[in-house]
């Protein structure tokens, strides 16, 4: 017990806790809509694009997030449009974009600095990676997501459940879909500092499917997803520190256990 209290004396732990908690709440909220609209893999695609962008930024000595944020936002927009126009199926589009971005990142990394601890952190998550500027950005993005989610909650529900009906009664569904993708891109870029590019999508998908197992109203599902997400993040961070395992993997394991429990107690 003494050890745990001692951990909080390290500022990097506090930063990771703060940003991790905020991002896990945001990811859970957005994730419910993504899972229900069958966009689960969008987080995977976006985080791989984020990794490619970070690798390029490191090679060019630029501030990583200044490169990663615009590129990931662009990728989110492209993914939505590719899915809509129907020439390339949505899931195939994501697979092509995400593996290409990952490949570019790997080539850039191996041509410049080689695989060091930094790159490992980007791929698999690190509790050390959250800087002070990440905290400001994380808090800003979390506020944006939470405020927009509350304000547009009823519209988000209507669009998630039935896009045709929402359009028919005058909701600008394209606008909200773009908003959803953009917010997801922001959460992914910040969240992947802790989760790593390879595992970021689990933060979007796991809490949502766990909550859907237990609850059958939308409001309860969302509240449950956010709660499960935070609990699993805290458990995962603790596991990561206690057993010295990569943070992202540890959080995914916590989510897997939560999902297994939900399957047992849920419907």
């Amino acid at each position: 017990m003494y050890n745990i209290v001692e951990l909080f004396q390290y500022s990097f732990v506090v930063r990771a806790l703060l940003v991790g908690t905020l991002m896990s709440i945001c990811a859970a909220l957005l994730g419910v809509s993504l899972v229900l609209k069958r966009y689960s893999m969008i987080g995977d695609g976006l985080s791989h694009v984020g990794f490619g962008a970070l690798a390029v930024a490191m090679a060019l000595n630029l501030v990583p997030l200044y490169v990663a944020i615009p590129l990931t936002l662009l990728a989110a927009y492209v993914l939505l449009k590719l899915g809509e126009c129907g020439r390339l199926k949505g899931d195939a589009a994501i697979a092509i974009l995400s593996s290409s971005a990952l490949a570019i990142g790997i080539i850039v990394v191996s041509c410049t600095q080689g695989f060091n601890a930094d790159v490992g952190g980007y791929l698999f998550g690190s509790i050390l990676a959250v800087s002070k500027s990440d905290v400001y950005l994380g808090v800003g993005i979390a506020l944006l997501v939470l405020v927009l989610y509350v304000v547009f909650y009823n519209k988000i529900f209507a669009i998630t459940f039935d896009e045709s009906f929402a359009r028919a009664i005058g909701v600008n569904t394209d606008r909200y879909r773009t908003l959803l993708a953009a917010l997801t891109a922001l959460v992914v870029v910040v969240g992947m500092r802790i989760m790593g590019a390879m595992l970021m999508s689990s933060l979007l998908v796991f809490p949502a499917i766990t909550a859907m197992r237990i609850f059958s109203t939308f409001r309860c599902t969302i509240i449950c997803a956010a709660t499960v997400s935070v609990v699993c993040l805290l458990a995962g961070l603790l596991g990561s520190l206690l057993f010295s395992i990569p943070t992202g993997a540890s959080i995914v394991m916590a989510n897997l256990i939560a999902y297994a429990l939900a399957r047992v107690v849920g419907r």
């Binding site: 009823n154 039935d162 009664i169 909550a211 309860c220």
Partner: peptide, 24 residues
């Protein structure tokens, strides 16, 4: 509209769904 596959396992109460009709 015609029903979509996504609605089959959608977590929502009847009340929540019918209320969304008042969105206009």
């Amino acid at each position: 509209p015609q029903r979509t596959p996504a609605q089959r396992d959608f977590p929502a109460s009847v009340f929540e769904i019918v209320l969304s009709g008042r969105l206009n």
